[in-house]
């Protein structure tokens, strides 16, 4: 990566559908990915609900955008942090989340997991390493 590459972290804290934040964040991530920065996503608080499995919006007449998270690997967005404490407070485990993968260019395109469950403490360190944090 070049010297001009900055580390961007998108911090997602809202549930999907109830408000527009989740969708707006995802769109900004996809647009931002075109600029080839070092992008990471963090899901904290109700944000963890954005990437739960089995969403089916047929009954509420709203587009189900959860399949789009699976395309993030194609956009070289492969650092997806989920806060452990937020999952636990909601009775969720990593098995309740989408199976997000990416192909590692530096490892013969091996398929790897994008999601990393981290503690609040670890997330604090990750936030500390960023150049820019965008909060949704």
């Amino acid at each position: 990566m070049s010297d001009t590459t900055k580390k961007f972290l998108y911090l997602n804290r809202k549930a999907p559908y109830g408000t527009i934040y989740a969708l707006e964040s995802l769109e900004v991530v996809l647009i931002g990915a075109a600029f080839e920065q070092d992008v990471a996503l963090a899901f904290v608080d109700d944000g963890v609900y954005q990437i739960t499995k089995g969403q089916d919006t047929a009954g509420i007449g709203v587009k189900n955008f959860s399949p789009t998270y699976s395309a993030l690997g194609d956009y070289d967005v492969n650092k997806i942090y989920v806060e452990k404490e937020s999952l636990e407070a909601r009775g969720l485990t990593v098995d309740d989340l989408l199976d997000l993968k990416y192909e590692d260019e530096d490892d013969d395109w091996a398929e790897k997991d994008s999601i990393r469950v981290v503690t609040a403490q670890e997330l604090a360190d990750i936030m500390d390493e960023q150049d820019v944090i965008l909060s949704f």
């Binding site: 549930a15 999907p16 559908y17 609900y49 739960t52 499995k53 089995g54 969403q55 089916d56 919006t57 047929a58 009954g59 509420i60 709203v62 189900n64 959860s66 009775g91 309740d96």
Partner: peptide, 22 residues
């Protein structure tokens, strides 16, 4: 409300005894 439960992928996580309504 069932459509809201399904939209959010929470169908299998509902507390037993809570009634889903359309």
């Amino acid at each position: 409300l069932q459509p809201d439960v399904e939209a959010r992928g929470m169908k299998d996580k509902i507390i037993e005894g809570i009634k889903l309504v359309d």
